[in-house]
């Protein structure tokens, strides 16, 4: 038993070293000393409290959009629509934030977050429904949904909800009573991080300990058998899809209430897709999602620093992420073969 764990750890360490080596080669090719480059990335992501907090901040949408893929996939259904759900959720929160007021900041924030989750949920509803009623491929519908949502939101912030005092396509600011407060002076770090982390742990708990989680797991593993055991597999699939949509919508809401304070063009640099990658790399495991989101966030915040101090462009972080994806997929395939039937 012990030697087996040890073996696994050795393999992982070795594996991480290989990824680092390939990264080093790529950085060297783009004309920078890999060690100093790693230094810049580390410094720019963990170097001081400010950097560290912005890395944690970056984790919020990545973690939640990854979870939005993970929950439905536990039940054997795919949600590639995190990006669109996030955008709509963000818009929903902004809409509430500049149009109503419930009188207390707590209620305002709570209500706006619920609305953002509902917007995301609705955007997962039709693909989920089409899947269980007509067996329409959810990969296609959720993916397509991203484009529809993105153009729809763009329309909304360009025309009916545009802040006309601004030269850019964006909504008005939300009322300050809707803002999730920053925790430290000089940093955008707010309670959003803890809300997001809390949501991940809640779902970790649900999938492991709840009856409902058990039914999700069984449905994902063998739907025919689950049906024989009296589990309503279609309902389970639909509900898990809705939960995924809600979590992605919530990510958008948290970004609006905790950071941007309005909905705007280029609101998301593709968080939904980063989340998808993270979820795949994390084998759908919520705890691993937290760790891998941290690495992705580190790369993304750190590479800004890298660009600042070297002649390596910040886009390199995308390339480094791609290398990681490549290696993890290869590793997955190899271990699948080894463990083979």
């Amino acid at each position: 038993m012990f030697s087996n764990t040890l073996k696994k750890i050795t393999i992982w360490v070795f594996f991480i070293l290989i990824i680092l080596a390939v990264w080093a080669v790529i950085i060297a090719i783009s004309g920078e000393n890999p060690f100093s480059a790693f230094g810049y990335i580390l410094e720019g992501s963990l170097g001081d409290t400010g950097y560290f907090l912005s890395t944690l901040n970056k984790m919020v949408p990545i973690m939640l959009t990854a979870l939005a893929v993970a929950i439905p996939s536990w039940a054997g259904i795919w949600n590639i629509g995190g990006e669109g759900q996030l955008l709509l959720g963000g818009f929903g929160a902004a809409l509430i934030g500049f149009s109503i007021n419930l009188g207390s900041s707590f209620l305002n924030i709570l209500f706006a977050l619920i609305v953002s989750a509902l917007f995301g949920l609705v955007w997962a509803l039709w693909p989920g429904y089409l899947k269980i009623k007509l067996n329409v491929d959810e990969v296609v519908t959720t993916l397509m949904g991203n484009y529809i949502a993105s153009y729809f939101v763009l329309f909304l912030i360009n025309y009916p909800f545009r802040d006309h005092s601004s030269p850019m396509a964006q909504t008005k600011y939300i009322d300050s009573s809707f803002q999730i407060p920053y925790m430290f002076r000089g940093s955008q770090f707010s309670y959003t991080f803890f809300i997001a982390l809390g949501v991940v742990f809640i779902f970790y708990f649900i999938i492991r300990k709840f009856k409902f989680g058990y039914e999700i797991r069984m449905t994902g593993s063998n739907p025919d058998f689950s049906k024989m055991s009296g589990i309503k597999t279609k309902k389970i699939k639909l509900v898990s899809m809705l939960m995924g949509g809600a979590v992605a919508g919530l990510a958008g809401g948290l970004l609006v209430l905790g950071m941007n304070h309005r909905m705007m063009q280029s609101f998301s640099p593709g968080f939904g897709f980063t989340g998808l990658l993270v979820c795949l790399l994390a084998f759908n495991n919520p705890i691993l999602i937290v760790f891998i989101s941290f690495i992705f966030a580190m790369l993304q915040t750190g590479s800004v620093n890298l660009e600042l101090f070297s002649n390596v462009p910040a886009e390199i972080s995308g390339l480094l992420q791609a290398v990681m994806v490549l290696f993890v997929s290869a590793f997955k395939i190899i271990s699948m073969r080894k463990g083979g039937k």
């Binding site: 797991r217 069984m218 593993s221 063998n222 058998f225 689950s226 049906k227 055991s229």
Partner: peptide, 15 residues
Amino acid sequence: NGLAIDRSILENGIA
């Protein structure tokens, strides 16, 4: 449709 073989003995036993 009689078992979910990649889930545990416990999970299969309580279906």
